[in-house]
Amino acid sequence: MADKNLLRGTLDLILLSILEDAPKYGLEIIGEAKNRTDGYFDFKEGSLYPALHRLEKAKHIKGEFAPSDAGGPRRRYYHLTERGLKHLQKQREEFERFSGKVQALWGAK
């Protein structure tokens, strides 16, 4: 399980990264985050949905209801907007720079 403090600072980056290749709905995002990181990122709904809605409010993603392929209630699929894609690129570069500098710090020891 990821450190909560670290997670808080990178939640947007993680969610935007997951949505980069295709639109996804909430449960799918949780599953993908878990599977792609061997269970390291295990979101709870309490942090996922407010974060998704916050990103939507910031116009980085857009949510749209669509029928579920499994039947049952409609799902809300989120996809990246142009603005979101730019934001993701910027966040990614920033993270890489940050991570590189921290590595450099440790390497300099």
């Binding site: 909430g26 949905y49 499994a70 049952g72 209630p73 799902r75 809300r76």
Partner: peptide, 27 residues
Amino acid sequence: SATRGLWGKKKREVEEELMAHISGRLN
């Protein structure tokens, strides 16, 4: 309980979204 504090269209949308989520987990 999860949608307490929301109202109108936003409340209905979040309810529907969570319902789909619950339905997925239940299945």
